Amino acid sequence: MAELLTGDDVRRVLSDLPGWSRDGDAITRTVTCSSFLAGIDLVRRVADAAESADHHPDIDIRWTAITFRLSTHSAGGITDKDVTLARTIDSLAS
């Protein structure tokens, strides 16, 4: 099982992840895409990466705004798996 990050660890990590914030036991980011279809394409690419990593985000689609919520449910909070997937999402969204 993945090890939970401490509150200090999460604060430090978030300082290196612009656009991400803590929401309870998860980190979240909303990406605004140029169109609905661009957002759906981003979701598909993130889904492919998440499947490869065997770590799946909660995703909320609101027209061109895509919100990603990352938490390691089996560990009960934020782990390095979430940080790694957040960096992957950032790369895919840029």
Rank of each mutant, 00 (worst) to 15 (best):
M1E: 15
T6F: 08
G7F: 12
D8W: 03
V10F: 06
R11Y: 11
R12V: 09
V13K: 11
D16S: 14
L17A: 06
L17Q: 04
W20V: 04
S21P: 00
R22W: 05
R22A: 12
G24R: 09
G24I: 07
T28W: 00
R29L: 03
V31F: 08
V31G: 00
T32S: 10
C33P: 00
C33K: 09
S34W: 02
F36Q: 10
A38Y: 04
A38K: 11
A38E: 14
G39E: 05
G39Q: 06
G39V: 05
D41P: 01
D41I: 06
V43N: 02
R44P: 01
A47H: 10
D48V: 14
A49K: 08
A49Q: 10
E51N: 10
E51S: 12
D54F: 06
H55A: 14
H55S: 14
P57S: 12
P57L: 08
D60G: 13
R62S: 14
W63Q: 11
A65E: 14
A65I: 05
A65V: 06
T67N: 06
T67G: 05
T67I: 05
T67W: 04
F68R: 01
L70I: 05
L70M: 06
S71W: 01
S71D: 04
S71E: 07
G76D: 03
G77N: 01
G77M: 01
K81H: 11
K81D: 13
D82G: 08
V83G: 02
T84M: 10
R87G: 07
R87A: 04
T88P: 07
T88W: 08
T88R: 13
I89A: 07
L92A: 07
S94W: 04
S94I: 08
